[in-house]
Design a protein around this nucleic acid. Sequence first.
RNA 1: GGCCCGUUCGUCUAAGGGUUAGGACACCACCCUUUCACGGUGGUGAUACGAGUUCGAAUCUCGUACGGGCUACCA
Length: 508
Amino acid sequence: MNKRVRVRFAPSPTGGLHLGGVRTVLYNYLFAKQHKGDFIVRIEDTDQSRYVAGAEQYIFNCLNWAGLVPDESPFNAGAYGPYRQSERKPIYRKYAEQLVQQGNAYYAFDTPEELEKMRNDFKSAENPSPQYDLDLRKKMRNSLTLTEEEVRKLLSENTKHVIRIKIPEKETISFTDMIRGEVHFDTSLVDDKVLLKADGMPTYHLAVVVDDYLMKITHAFRGEEWLPSAPVHILLWKYLFGLEEMPQWAHLPLILGPSGKLSKRDGATYGFPVFAMNWTDPTTKELSEGFKEKGFLPEAFINLLALLGWNDGTEQEIFTLEELINKFSIERVHSGGAKFDYEKAKWFNHEWIKHSEADRLRSEVKTLLEERGFSVRDDVYLEKVIELVKERCIVLPDFLEQSSFFFKTPESWDVETVKPKWNIEKKIFFESFIQQLLLLKNWNATDIEILFKKLVTENKIKAGELLFPLRIMLVGGKFGPPVFNITELLGKEETIKRIKLASIQFDS
RNA sequence: GGCCCGUUCGUCUAAGGGUUAGGACACCACCCUUUCACGGUGGUGAUACGAGUUCGAAUCUCGUACGGGCUACCA
């Protein structure tokens, strides 16, 4: 049997796209591409009360930034669409009713209040959260306890009701997880999950099974938090479509924060991004900065995420998307959760910046500079600057501090550092240095340095005493790449101009 | 509480019965560098605990502890 690989990612437009979500997409994507299959995105908006307008587009923007574009647009119904669950409502009803007909599901007429009462009444120290299970369902109002006539009457009166799966009494459900191997569940401990809600929308449980079947999904990867509800999904496959048709499951380990499952709160508390891109909480209006806006390269973001729970068995840590597609293997994914380490994340980004060609970084850096009012006219010049400073930039905004002086003459200088040691000899030195520079034929770092060193020797002053002031003259402070490289890029005119301007400051 | 999953340096991890338990981040020291970085060399640092199987266990089995997840008409 040569099945075509189709994997799907199913984000819910109720919150931002966080680390765990992107990694799930990434593994889906890598697996699909590796097997020359399709990667599709299905949108889970079954809970209309938590639905956030615009979130779908946000998620898609994140995927686009990260380079993980689905093969079928989730917004236009293709052969297997629509992909938005709210647009598939009638489909779910049909299958839910089928389950009732087959005796695998039943109508339940309990109101939310009644359910709450039940949970309170049966709550005990040993059982803090009573389940709607094979014992309790006998005590509730549903098509199992009511007479056929009563049920018909309630239905004809349009009484609010849900459809629940009827979990079999004593059965062991087993399946093979691609990461964990055989997993077993005892049905006597699983509750009768709601499949179709009172508003006619499906729950995740029904939707995921029906959609995976109709969309011909062959492999389903999701977070480990779904493992406990896997038996419900297995049962639904068995009742509806047959186990042979069921996709292979892989439950991915969780990405942990400093304490437990990584949450939005962790980002705020510990000062690192948890979302791919900026996300504003719709209720609190609180903005969470994304990896993109923080200045991460998408290549680095993908790279660090891929390595959080997987490695290829070698000591290689830096991978391109292309390499990941070739080398990824679901069998090598860890079963244990991984704690996110922001320091290591920054290291990945630093590596990617260092190893990127200047023209790869050009437009990002240009935008950054222009946003701050620096005008960048010459792309060749900009690339030279990037090449010179990139190894000291960990995140993109670092380019601002490291390179802005290449585009604007400093307005102030670190006078305090220079002034105490500033004297007439030094003043004279720089005056003759300017004279020599004017005569210099080849304007490059090496020749300027030779000239400088020669002059230093002639004047019998220590080089260090002069190198430091020169740096501050050129950039304004104690930072930046090697001084003579700066002079080379700045050019003769600008270099001399800055030395003159700064000297005046030091004199006063 | 019940069920499920997990446990190798502080963190991410390698090692699939025999290794001085390897690498990376972080940290420390030194070298390079008359700034800051990059780079180089070295260092501190781990198999949760207890039994069992075995000539031999991080590795297989069981128990304990700890961590995490789930236990909604959320996903």
